[in-house]
Simulated scan of single mutants.
Amino acid sequence: MELAVFNSVDRDEAIKVLTPCLDITRWVETIVDARPFASVDELLGQANNAAEPFTPEEVESAMAHHPRIGERPKAQTTEAAMSRSEQAGVDVSDATAAALADGNRDYEEKFGRVFLIRAAGRSAQEILATLQERLTHTPEQEDMIVAEQLREIALLRLSGLVSEGANA
């Protein structure tokens, strides 16, 4: 969607467009209500600022929509399509897939939620190493990292969703 279109659609439509990037109502509404934006960079700056900080409740709510790393979401939603695209570049061998599955289980047992990482631009080995390292964290450390990962994912999705357009 071109930025000019995003700036001009009605509030409900803009909310509908942004929600798959990150399903946190406060974040979405803060961005939508700050329109119009002069540039995509300004939009991303607002999105970044609106993410500071996410409350534990917001993180928990947003996490309900994220698949396990290494598992492709099967739902036919915009958010699931974004997640499939983000994980598409991660080439996973059978051994790495098994290690990720084990690590995911360990992480869920320890922290009570799925392991979340911005997969785009990362190799399967890098994701696995990060998962193993994060298993050594305290819940408080992980809360901060998960909120940061949600922010990174949201900004990545938003930057792929809105463009300057032909007149920029």
Rank of each mutant, 00 (worst) to 15 (best):
M1E: 09
L3P: 03
V5W: 01
S8Q: 14
D10L: 10
R11C: 07
D12H: 12
E13N: 09
E13F: 12
E13A: 14
V17L: 12
P20E: 07
P20H: 05
I24V: 15
T25H: 04
R26N: 09
R26P: 08
R26E: 12
I31V: 15
I31L: 12
R35V: 11
P36M: 08
S39D: 07
S39I: 14
L43P: 02
N48F: 13
N49D: 13
E52G: 05
E57I: 11
V59A: 09
E60S: 07
A62W: 01
A62Q: 02
M63A: 14
A64V: 11
A64T: 12
H65N: 06
H66W: 03
R68H: 11
R68F: 01
R68K: 15
I69T: 04
E71M: 07
A75C: 06
E79L: 08
E79I: 04
E79N: 05
A80G: 06
S85I: 03
E86I: 00
G89I: 04
S93I: 09
S93E: 15
D94Y: 11
D94I: 10
A95C: 07
A98G: 11
A98K: 15
L100H: 04
D102V: 06
R105C: 01
R105P: 01
Y107V: 00
E108K: 00
G112D: 02
A119E: 03
A124Y: 02
Q125E: 15
T130K: 05
L131Y: 03
R134S: 04
R134D: 03
T136E: 15
T136G: 10
P139Q: 02
P139K: 01
E140A: 13
E142S: 08
M144C: 12
M144D: 13
I145M: 14
I145S: 06
A147Y: 01
E148W: 04
Q149G: 12
I153Q: 06
L155N: 14
L156W: 03
S159P: 12
L161M: 13
V162E: 01
V162N: 04
V162G: 05
S163R: 06
S163F: 03
N167I: 01
A168C: 13
